[in-house]
């Protein structure tokens, strides 16, 4: 991607403002990281607890740039055949059959074996050529003319071998295909990798990326996010519910409620025509915020105290 083609990413403020217009409220550190990634042409490795908008960041960037988003979901066992490229085997087979039939015509009039082989060498060898190449997400991202946003989601779920495969792409934006040679990116894609930290990624991978850690947002930021996503909600209720969620995050829970859960909760409170939080309402809707029975039970005892801290009753 040529820097001058994308004035949206020209400086940090413009990125933050652009994101906000699309409805993605981000902290300044996120905007800074996107800015640097774009300017330095480096991939960003995004880490953070689930549900803080890691994947969303890539989607939003694609929207802001109006570039195609190419997504590769990682899992154990993902290999180059699914991530990078594959040969179209059945077409290759058909090709050899066609070739066999045509062979007589082609070699017609050849004096001896040596001449036949000579003639054979004269046709281009298209068995292993781009025509029979089936590009998978990584290669597709390399081939986009105006650049693309490449999202390699949950890279920590993939195998070590796959990580090694990524190294070439991430550092030089090129792919080596043994039969063809090296395919360089037409235009450097913007690459996001996300990780939930189920395992440590290799140093080599980390070295090639900028590292962005997205924590749970501050109260102020989260209120802005809720306002942007659920604009109909009353300001007082919004303040209360964000404060309550922040209170929950202080507790020792198995899984803390993420931003997406705050938003879901805000939406459902809106549907219930709630005007302010009270204990009964919170208890009734707690399962929207917490996904484990243990967590719900533990929080149940704390609801009153937490509500008290939010300025409710």
């Amino acid at each position: 991607m040529r820097i001058e083609d994308y004035p949206q990413l020209g400086d940090v403020e413009r990125i933050a403002a652009g994101f906000e217009e699309i409805g993605y409220i981000c902290s300044e550190s996120i905007a800074t990281a996107v800015f640097l990634a774009f300017q330095l042409r480096k991939p960003i490795l995004v880490e953070g607890p689930p549900g803080v908008g890691k994947t969303e960041l890539a989607k939003t960037t694609a929207e802001l740039l109006q570039a195609p988003l190419i997504r590769l979901q990682c899992y154990e066992g993902l290999d180059e055949g699914k991530a990078l490229y594959e040969w179209k085997y059945s077409k290759q087979l058909l090709y050899t059959q066609v070739l066999k039939e045509k062979l007589g015509d082609l070699l017609h009039g050849a004096y001896d074996l040596a001449e036949s082989v000579e003639r054979l060498h004269q046709f281009g060898d298209i068995f292993y050529s781009e025509e029979f190449l089936e590009p998978r997400p990584l290669l597709r991202a390399m081939r986009q003319e105006r650049g693309a946003v490449l999202l390699i989601d949950e890279v920590d779920k993939s195998d070590y071998e796959f990580e090694a495969l990524l190294l070439e792409i991430l550092s030089d934006y090129q792919v080596s295909i043994p039969e063809i040679g090296t395919v360089s990116a037409q235009s450097t894609p913007m690459v996001f990798l996300t990780s939930n930290n189920t395992r440590d990624l290799s140093d080599a991978l980390k070295r090639r990326c900028l590292h962005l850690y997205i924590p749970f947002p501050s109260v102020e930021l989260e209120e802005r996010i809720v306002r942007s996503r659920v604009p109909e909600i009353d300001e007082r209720l919004r303040r209360q519910l964000v404060a309550f969620v922040h209170g929950l995050r202080e507790l020792d829970l198995k899984k803390h409620p993420a931003i997406s859960e705050t938003i879901d909760w805000a939406r459902s409170l809106l549907l219930l025509h709630a005007e302010q939080l009270d204990e009964a309402l919170v208890r009734a809707t707690l399962n929207l915020l917490l996904k484990f029975e243990d967590d719900i039970q533990m929080t149940d005892a704390e609801v009153g105290r937490l509500l008290h801290g939010t300025g409710g009753d």
Partner: peptide, 28 residues
């Protein structure tokens, strides 16, 4: 990378410089 990031971000905004350098230097 860090040097280039610092050039791009400038030294005026301390928070921003910190965030930027952090992405290039700290990886966990």
């Amino acid at each position: 990378d860090a040097v280039r990031a610092a050039e791009l971000l400038g030294y005026a905004n301390r928070e921003r410089l910190r965030d930027g350098l952090c992405t290039t230097l700290a990886k966990t």
